[in-house]
Structure formats: structure tokens, C-alpha cells
Amino acid sequence: MVLALGYFDGVHTGHQEVIRTAAAIAAEKNCALGVMTFHPHPKVVLSAETNENNMRYLTPLSHKEECLQEQGPDYLFVVQFDKQFASKEPQEFVDQYLIGLQAVHVTAGFDYSYGRLGRGTMETLPFHSRGRFGQTIVGEVTRNGEKISSTAVKECIQTGDIEKAGSLLGRPYSIRGVVEGGEQRGRTIGFPTANIHKHDLYIVPAPGVYAVRIYVGGRWLDGAASIGFKPTFHDEAPEDPVIEVYIFDFNQDIYGENVEVCFYTFIRGEETFNSAEELIEEMNRDVEKARTVLAARSDVPGTS
């Protein structure tokens, strides 16, 4: 088996290069392709400031597993990252998880580390391999001179640069959740929205309005999403930003439906309006901008 190693949050284009490299070697050696990842994020176990409740992911585990499966491995290994695993010496990790799986070759990014305190690196892996498997280091993957990394993608999302985030990911950033009952205020102003409750600990884009597509009822539909704290109607902001999607030309009851929202373009930041009438005027402009953006794009998710 050829194994691709990494945490792979986001399964971005840099991660995809690691897996593609492993796939090419597996084809050359006529053997199986495996991908090994970990959960939860090491910070949850090793950092006093981080826990599973305040950690935010580009791709929570179930979403990441699906993205990794789309890369076509024969095997996907998800290793539980806990204190016992974190305490393993580099040689123990290699013996148990790489040699133990009878890997004949391993690929990983140049900054991959393993073993207690991350003391194992791609430079030490030839020693720890005991000559049982080969190694390939995938160098830094860049776009326009900038390193592609999960950190870079997160920064783009959190600042509203959702188009750049999609470019680094190789697909639009998306959040999965369920449609739940909201304040239903949108219905009173002519913009009924689907209130999205996130399934998991996703990073939420910066407050504002976005052109989106939403997967519901077995199809992708165009819409405009509002993320924020509804300052026009609330003096106090809720703890978490609200995600609402106005689906164009749609009037079905979808409460309780599981959905996925793909973010394409940032239209404007969150604003406070003096009246509902001003808000309605701006929302009409938002919808027209979103329609124009989406009409110009052919990359509907889930199609080829």
C-alpha cells in the first residue's frame, strides 16, 4: 500500500497534490492507495486554550471523510488523536501505523510531523522507516506566490474573501446543516429565508451577504445568504452569527431538511438600516447582484 499522510482539514489543492502524488506512485507500483488522517485536531488535545467546543474546522470529520473519498483512495484511515496517541515516540508511530499497515511507500507534505512533540519529520522518516518503505516529500504548493494552507483558507473565509478561499480549496467553501425555524421576519418583508443550523463546528464566513447555491431536495438552487447578527432588528447580538438563505423562485416547506450551502461571492458587509423599507431596497439589489454572479458561473457542485 502507498499511504498519503496528513491532517487534511479542507482537503485543499495542496492536500490534493499529496494524494495525487501517492496515487501516481501506487499506480506505478500496482498496489493499493491509502489515506491516513487524524481526529480531532491536535490542538484540542494539546492546547489548554482549545477544546472541541471552540475548535472550528473547514471540513468537520464527516465532511472531510467525504472529500477524501472523492480523491479515490482504496482505504481511508482515521486515527483517533488522543493523549495516548500524542505520547507515542516517532519510532512507535512508524512501527505501528506505517510498517504495521505494510506500507511500501509514504507521501506527505514537507511540513508533516509525527510522534511526541512532533519530533518526527519527513527528514527523519527514512531513519524511522527501518528501510521498509520509501518516502516522497511534496513541496510547498503555491498560488500566485502564496503558500496554500488550511490557515490561509481560514483567513480568507473569516475576512469574507470567499472567492480566494474557493480558489485555494479547488471548490466553493460550503457548510452543511439543517433548516430550522427562525424568527420568520423575512416572510413579512417579502424575503422568506431558510435558517441554517450548522451540523458541526464549521468556520463561518465574515458577516455579510453572499451569492450561494444550496443543495436541498436532491438539487442545487441559487440564492443569497445573509450571515450576521441582524443589527436592524436587534440591539444585542446573538452569540453566534445567523446563517439565512433566500432561495430564488422557491416557495416550499423545507423545515427539517438537511442542506449544504456553497459560498461563491461576497456581495457586501452587514449593515444597519434605519427602517425595514431601506433593508428591502438593499436586499433587492443584493438579489440582483447574486443572480448575475451565479448566472455567469457554470461550476454547479456535484456536476462535471
Rank of each mutant, 00 (worst) to 15 (best):
V153R: 10
V153C: 14
V153I: 15
V153N: 10
V153F: 07
V153H: 11
K154P: 05
K154S: 14
E155H: 10
E155L: 09
C156Q: 12
I157K: 02
Q158G: 12
Q158R: 11
Q158N: 11
T159C: 08
I162D: 01
I162V: 13
I162S: 07
I162A: 04
E163M: 01
E163N: 02
K164L: 12
K164D: 07
K164T: 14
K164Q: 15
A165H: 04
A165L: 01
A165V: 03
A165N: 03
G166H: 01
G166I: 06
G166N: 03
G166S: 10
S167T: 11
S167V: 08
S167A: 15
L168R: 06
L169D: 13
G170P: 08
G170M: 09
G170C: 07
G170W: 08
R171M: 09
R171A: 12
R171F: 14
P172T: 11
Y173V: 09
Y173I: 15
S174H: 15
S174D: 05
I175F: 09
V178D: 05
V178M: 08
V179Q: 06
E180S: 14
E180T: 14
E180V: 15
G181W: 03
G181Q: 11
G181F: 06
G181Y: 05
G181D: 07
E183I: 05
E183C: 03
Q184H: 12
Q184D: 11
Q184Y: 08
R185G: 09
R185M: 12
R185Q: 11
R185V: 11
R185D: 08
G186W: 01
G186Q: 01
G186F: 02
G186I: 06
R187D: 04
R187V: 09
T188N: 03
T188W: 00
T188V: 02
I189V: 12
I189M: 07
I189S: 07
I189K: 00
I189L: 10
G190S: 03
G190V: 08
G190N: 09
F191W: 05
F191L: 08
P192Q: 05
T193N: 02
T193G: 00
T193P: 00
T193W: 00
T193R: 00
A194P: 03
A194F: 01
N195T: 05
N195P: 08
N195W: 00
N195Y: 00
N195D: 01
I196N: 03
I196A: 04
H197E: 13
H197R: 15
H197W: 08
K198L: 14
K198V: 11
K198I: 05
H199A: 12
H199F: 13
H199K: 14
D200K: 13
D200Y: 08
D200N: 13
D200W: 06
Y202N: 08
Y202I: 05
I203V: 14
I203Y: 08
V204M: 07
V204Y: 00
P205L: 09
P205H: 03
A206H: 12
A206C: 10
A206Q: 12
A206D: 09
P207L: 04
P207W: 04
P207Q: 09
G208S: 11
G208P: 11
V209I: 14
V209S: 03
V209L: 02
Y210M: 05
A211S: 14
A211I: 10
V212R: 02
R213H: 10
R213E: 06
R213D: 07
R213F: 03
R213Q: 14
R213Y: 01
I214R: 04
Y215A: 10
